[in-house]
């Protein structure tokens, strides 16, 4: 008969925890289900349940670009691009700090893009998108970037290009309204 020593109880508890974690990981590989949504957004506070579908089913084929321009009085400045999509160096296989900026922007843009249809469906326009976290992240970063004058209005543009495939022209994802910064 199993003796309920502290070691045996601890072993049982941890085994159950690991089994639940593994089961939750399997369930969360199916993105669109209610269970997956519940675990991801209601339980998984620390992002401990991974999604293992790397680069599939739709691999990221585009580079994202974040551009902005200012309006002062009645004139507009040129569009400026935030330096995010830098080319990697020889040592990037070992040391690649630049990947974080790219991944953040890529995550934020993907989050924005994926939420656009639901905003359109619910309200018929994209006005409420301005209150979403990804939009605010982009606006916040753009607002503080190379700000030359006080109280100017800034508009940002999210665009995508196909990197080294030069034959493909860049395209617009989102054009914001002018925000006072």
């Amino acid at each position: 008969m199993l003796k309920l020593t502290p070691t045996a109880i601890y072993e049982l508890v941890i085994t159950v925890i690991l089994a639940c974690w593994f089961l939750a990981t399997i369930l969360c590989q199916f993105k669109e289900t209610g269970v997956s949504w519940f675990i991801r957004y209601k339980i998984d506070l620390f992002n401990l349940i991974p999604l293992w579908t790397f680069f599939a089913p739709h691999p990221g084929k585009r580079d994202y670009h974040l551009l902005f321009r200012d309006k002062t009085d009645d004139s507009y400045t040129e569009w400026h691009e935030m330096d995010i999509t830098e080319e990697r160096t020889f040592w990037s296989w070992l040391w690649n700090p630049e990947k974080r900026d790219k991944k953040i922007l890529s995550d934020v843009v993907q989050s924005l893009v994926s939420s656009i249809p639901s905003y359109r469906e619910k309200t018929g326009n994209l006005n409420l998108l301005m209150f979403s976290t990804p939009y605010i992240i982009v606006l916040h970063a753009v607002s503080h970037y190379k700000k030359h004058t006080e109280n100017c209005y800034r508009q940002f543009m999210l665009a995508e290009s196909a990197g080294y495939q030069k034959e493909t022209t860049p395209s617009l994802i989102l054009l914001s309204v002018f925000h006072q910064i």
């Binding site: 680069f55 599939a56 691999p59 990221g60 084929k61 585009r62 580079d63 994202y64 999509t85 830098e86 080319e87 790219k102 890529s106 196909a162 990197g163 080294y164 495939q165």
Partner: peptide, 12 residues
């Protein structure tokens, strides 16, 4: 897929 991913400046 691989050609498309490798052609981006982000991951290629």
């Amino acid at each position: 897929a691989i050609k498309d991913v490798f052609s981006t400046k982000t991951y290629g």
